[in-house]
């Protein structure tokens, strides 16, 4: 597993050179944006059940057959598995966001996910839709464009508008999962 710092180190080691001023520019930005990154991570961890439950409900509302007998979310045991997977994906996205590098998400979540879903008969299109909704909800909470409670009043980064870049980084991690399942 790598973070933004060790990723830079591994890249430099392949060239056999130390990391100089030019290489450190992006890392200094990572350090400067640390508070935003922490807030964005909190935006996920404090809203996990809400994000996952909304995404799965949204997916079911668009395909009501899923909860009928014979549907993939019937009986509730399978619906519960679906909610659990949503939370697992969110957890790895939160790790990747904190690290500033997708390797933990790739190695421990995405690798083999599609094969597992195919083997278990999970419909990939519906899984992708649920992840898309999670992405939209997460970005909305981070940038405070959601309805309801706003995240950042009074804590580190001050406002959601400042977290736009971090939110699009988070969106890119969701996109990685979507791409892997598509």
């Amino acid at each position: 597993m790598l973070d933004a710092f060790s990723r830079a180190v591994v890249t430099a080691d392949s060239k056999g050179a130390p990391l100089g001023r030019a290489d450190l520019v992006s890392l200094r930005k990572y350090v400067a944006d640390a508070n935003k990154r922490i807030d964005a991570t909190l935006a996920i961890t404090q809203n996990v059940s809400c994000i996952a439950a909304d995404a799965v409900s949204g997916m079911v509302c668009e395909n009501t057959g899923l909860t009928q007998p014979g549907g993939h979310c019937y009986p509730t045991r399978r619906m519960a598995a679906c909610l659990r997977d949503g939370e697992i994906i969110l957890r790895y996205v939160s790790y990747a966001l904190l690290a500033g590098d997708p390797s933990v998400l790739d190695d421990r979540c995405i690798n083999g996910l599609k094969e597992t879903y195919l083997a278990l008969g999970v419909p990939l299109a519906n899984a992708v839709r649920a992840i898309e909704i999670m992405k939209i909800a997460t970005v909305a909470i981070m940038t405070e464009t959601n309805t309801g409670r706003k995240m950042f009043e009074g804590i580190n980064s001050g406002s959601g508008a400042d977290c736009k870049d971090i939110a699009s980084e988070a969106a890119s991690y969701f996109d990685r999962v979507i791409d892997a399942l598509s």
């Binding site: 597993m1 790598l2 904190l98 500033g100």
Partner: peptide
């Protein structure tokens, strides 16, 4: 690193 230890 500091971050990966925490995540692990």
């Amino acid at each position: 690193s500091a971050v990966t230890t925490v995540i692990s």
